[in-house]
Amino acid sequence: MNRMPRLLALLAAVLVLGGVAVGATLHAADRAAEKDHARPGDPRVRPGSVVLGAPGRSVFRNMAWGPHRDEISAVPANDPAGPRTSSGIRCLRFHTAGGTGICLQAVHGRLRDSYRAVVLDARLRELRHYDLAGVPTRARVSPSGRSVAWTVFVSGDSYAGTSFSTRTSVLDTRAWSLDRNLEDYRFLLDDRPHRAADLNVWGVTFADDTHFYATAATGGRTYLVRGDRTERTLRTLHTNVECPSLSPDGTRIAYKKRVEGASPDAPWRLYVLDLRTLRESATTERRNVDDQAVWRDGHTLVYSLPGDYGSDLWTVPADGSGAPSLLMTAALAPAFTG
């Protein structure tokens, strides 16, 4: 066959395919640039100073379009739809308690993006940072502000191709001692030591500075575990519990439960577990919840659902009464202090 027609065909294809590729990239770039501009009707955001632990304020990641997208922002707790004060600190995940903040953020490098965990003081100044091994997903601070935990997704860590695993670390911000991987703790399944290569731990919620609850998964099941930093142990308490969140009085766990009969794509519902009786009760939120809920007070849960800006915050009573209601649009990862 003659070589010329084939080369011409290749050239034509390179031009067409290259055009499509460049076009798609430019289109996506335009769309990304659009998010840098606020639209009429968006929540109002203005730059200012944000102080952690200030009474009557809620702090969260602002998702509204504009120059302050992804920044840690604050609103008065009694006026969640009011104007937002934005700190200039960008985080993918955030939590605060006791005057300590934890911010999991992206660092844009020259050859690839990486992630790090930044520990912040009450005025959002960096105390220390730690490099992360993967994409951030959960972050929590203990009630006193001394201990901090985070979870990232790590890919390519398992033997079976496309599977992903989690890596959860716990940090003491007084001694600055870091337990990089909770999978290294002794895992007690029904009080018997159990070693598993497929163990995954995620979603820490603190009881105090050394005790916490979290989700552990092995053999295709998930467990609520109670963790102890001093003993370096994880003990299973209950099954089918993911992303636990401990109530302020320490008696109940709000969590996402994988329910039967739900679509495999949206399998989780928001439940509350009584730690004394191990009795589970459903909340009135019937939609799929894929978030680690937070307790606004002793009886109200706040959680994220997908929305126009990526995420909106909703509330529902923890005791199974009432109905879900929208708390604020364009927000993620809230914390309620003071």
Binding site: A13, A24, T25, A28, A29, R31, A32, K35, D113
Partner: peptide, 23 residues
């Protein structure tokens, strides 16, 4: 990475470019 750098969150662009390359 180059595509994502040009277009933040442009996963659809990554898939489109990937499709063009595969073609």
């Amino acid at each position: 990475f180059v595509v994502l750098r040009a277009a933040a969150d442009g996963y659809d662009a990554v898939f489109t470019v990937s499709g063009c390359v595969a073609a």
